[in-house]
Amino acid sequence: MAEEAAIVFDRGRALRMLVVPALFDEANRLRRQTMELMRRLDRLGIDCFLPDLPGTGESLRPGESISLDDWRAAMASAAEHFRANHALALRGGALVRPNLPGPDHAPVKGATILRQLLRMRVLSAREAGRTERADDLLVRALTEGIELAGYRLGPAMVAQLEAAMPDEGRPVISQGDIGGGALWLRAEAGEDPVQADGLAQRVAAGIGA
């Protein structure tokens, strides 16, 4: 874990929460909102830690070699490093979070993430006058890997995404619970203080902060 960067609000308090980010393009679109959320968790008395996923952000590991299992291992080791006793997963983060108390926010299946990434690629190829089919891309991706939304996904990542499901036993805070439009669907990265308040308060209430 030592070689990966993290954003940290640590005041040595009893509640220590690992924040597992959304995956791929959604991580970019939620980056600012995730910071807004962490500032509020801090104000609510919760220490919180947002690690980079290996192969993304400031990480030096090449994306091609990374699988969901690597992200699971990295999140588990981050939880240990920061002595986290709670976790909060955002969107696809639910697929790689450690099994600590705390909710998933708007969890998503790996297959849906993959479908969305493939569709973005097919549509942008079409705008450039090229015809690609998501089905064909997927078949090839499973043996050769693929570049989607600027991320290089190796075959193991593609196969694991297809199969990965959030754990249905965990508490969920849905977008409908918070209200407003989902920021991970926006073309531009944005932030929404009202949504950040709503999510932070629900997270805090759910873990008895």
């Binding site: 849906t112 479908r115 973005m120 549509l123 942008s124 089919r133 998501a134 073309a187």
Partner: peptide
């Protein structure tokens, strides 16, 4: 102006999830 090619992908995937059908590439 809000509907660019990236948000088209989000729109279609969200329609699939919430309305419960699959949209094929050639239907787009």
């Amino acid at each position: 102006p809000e509907l660019d090619s990236m948000s088209v992908a989000g729109l279609l995937t969200e329609m699939e999830d919430r309305l419960g059908f699959i949209i094929e590439d050639d239907e787009v």
